[in-house]
Design a protein around this nucleic acid. Structure first.
Lengths: 337, 337
DNA sequence: GTCTAGCACTCTGTGTTCCCGAGTGCCAAG
DNA sequence: CTTGGCACTCGGGAACACAGAGTGCTAGAC
């Protein structure tokens, strides 16, 4: 049905349209890409492509524009991820290497990605699930309040103020801290609920109410903070682009953690580190935008996702190359720390 | 020079223009606001106001539009801050009360403010300067690495990974932690540099390289993280507005901490909690936008600033009311924790 | 002296018409 | 199957006219 030349025509249409932002006609096509055939022939092919739904014309007698289905075919079969230049690679490396803590890594990553792709970059904080407890700290604030600080091996720090049901002396707090650390140090976060289940029973009765309160906050922290936090950068890159769904809708989605989460997508079971591309109407909520995302994290333990959001009319090969490269470097950095 | 009626005309022009976004003419003015005079008289007053530079006309024979100078006069002398409704107050209270930690307070505040004003809200993290050390924690990561965690009384947590110049045993780390806490607990952050100055000398010579490294990171943290962090929300509210300087420039400024910092402005020495309003060209960098900001923090010790950024054509009384109210509530919350 | 009414003038924005050109689809010939 | 030719169709820009809103000015009223 679709012979090689028709595919070549589709590829040419996508490339031209992406770079010029104007419907591309048969004549210009035959000229720019040396297809060795006449415009008339190209027209026939275009008619076939349109018949199949890969391209469409905005109005009679305008050039053709790829449809979502056309972009999909282009991404799947007609293009290959474009590797970054050496200079870009070095820039990434030095820029990320300067990060001082996890927050900084994430912030730098998202900015880097935004600048590299000239789109909006989105980075999910590494999830806690597979990380392990490095340290638990209880800091007395007043006699009825302590601050619970949880430090993980990925360098993430969670903090919560706990209101105690009764006054607890500092020495007992200190003891509790020692017990907690003895119990949890080095354990995977997912194991924490089981490990602390019988903790109250192993302590003096008088401590139990306080311990129960602290533990409930601890568990809450594990569940709630799971992998909710997402940041973005590069909103300024949206200024030029035109979205069918409206700029406002895109900006709103960016500020809604939940929506952003859905857009970034779940790690696809078997190959979480594979690049995911969602084109236009394939997206939940935000039709008219495309998303290029991938998982990142050190090899075997996948941590979270990052990606780029932009207009459907984007340069997929370049964007995919940047996303993949950044994900790799960040994974390295995280593995090293 | 400017009698009462002329001022009333200016006020009416500002109010009408803000609500309609269209140049306002003499006839409509005389009708809507019952000025008890004819359009012709209004025209004379308008001519005077234009002469003085308070209003201008986009082109001959269009209505008048306030200039920056006009808005300035309006804000300073013709309007009064509009208090929030009871429902709004209650909404703020309950929404902010649910915050679990400092991050959460800031995040909730910025979203609240954005929603309330339908503009872009900007909140600076409470500065460390006047807060005190609650606890210093050293967590061994590997034998050459420790994580330094600094917890302040405002609930802020700073973390840094420190590379040690040599292997240090855990027991010595623990000892060092005890010394650090004994030395710093409860002290103002600004006093820290002095307090730790002679610390290396008071410890065994073998520990000194490690201590020096850790202290230098600690001091670095104090200086660098000072009050740099700023967050914003409500970028979606920019979608409709038109900025003379261009949407892109505004979005770029929002993502540049430094610029944002400058825009939010320094606390004006004597009355830091006063509302600051910068109108249009009074702004550094971002002409064509206005900023309503104020300091917040508990009474005597001023912590940081928050505010709202929007088009020059904004409803100042309402915006000022919202900013002031939110600042007060946040100050309360922070004082209580 | 201040306000008002009337009037001529000046624009902008909108709707209409017209035309050019890019691009198409189809057909017949190579 | 490809190509050249040809008639057809729209979109978009230029030219134009026109209504409407708003102004400035001047002369008269209070």
């Amino acid at each position: 049905m679709l012979d090689d030349r028709k595919l070549a025509v589709l590829r040419a249409i996508v490339e031209d349209y992406v770079s010029t932002n104007e419907p591309v006609g048969s004549k210009a096509l035959a000229e720019r890409h040396n297809l060795k055939v006449s415009p008339a022939t190209v027209r026939n092919d275009m008619a076939a492509l349109e018949e199949e739904g890969y391209i469409t014309q905005p109005h009679t007698s305008a050039g053709r524009v790829p449809t979502d289905k056309g972009y999909r075919l282009f991404v799947d079969r007609l293009s290959q991820v474009k590797p970054l230049s050496g200079a870009e690679r070095r820039a990434i490396e030095t820029f990320l290497a300067g990060a001082v803590d996890l927050d900084d890594v994430v912030t730098r990553t998202v900015r880097l990605l935004a600048q590299l792709t000239r789109q909006v970059a989105v980075v999910q904080y590494p999830t806690l699930t597979r990380s392990t407890v490095r340290h638990v700290e209880l800091v007395p604030l007043t006699d009825r309040r302590v601050m619970l600080v949880l430090i993980t091996n990925t360098g993430r720090v969670e903090q919560r103020v706990v209101e105690l049901p009764e006054v607890v002396e500092e020495t007992r707090i200190a003891h509790l801290r020692a017990v907690l650390n003895a119990c949890l140090d080095g354990c995977g976060l997912s194991a924490v609920p089981d490990l602390v289940a019988d903790l109250p029973e192993r302590l003096p009765a008088e401590d139990r109410p306080a311990v129960a309160t602290i533990l409930s906050v601890l568990l809450e922290t594990l569940v709630e903070r799971h992998d909710e936090k997402i940041v973005f950068a590069g909103a300024a890159n949206l200024a030029g682009a035109d979205f069918t769904t409206g700029l406002r809708a895109v900006l709103e989605a960016l500020e809604e953690q939940v929506v952003l989460m859905r857009l970034l997508g779940e790690t696809s079971g078997d190959t979480p580190s594979a690049l995911t591309v969602r084109i236009g109407s394939e997206n939940p909520y935000l039709h008219g935008t495309s998303i290029v995302a991938t998982g990142y994290g050190s090899g075997d333990n996948q941590l979270a996702r990052l990606g780029v959001l932009g207009p459907t009319r984007m340069d997929y090969p370049v964007t995919m190359g940047a996303v993949r490269a950044v994900a790799r470097y960040v994974s390295q950095i995280l593995a090293a720390s």
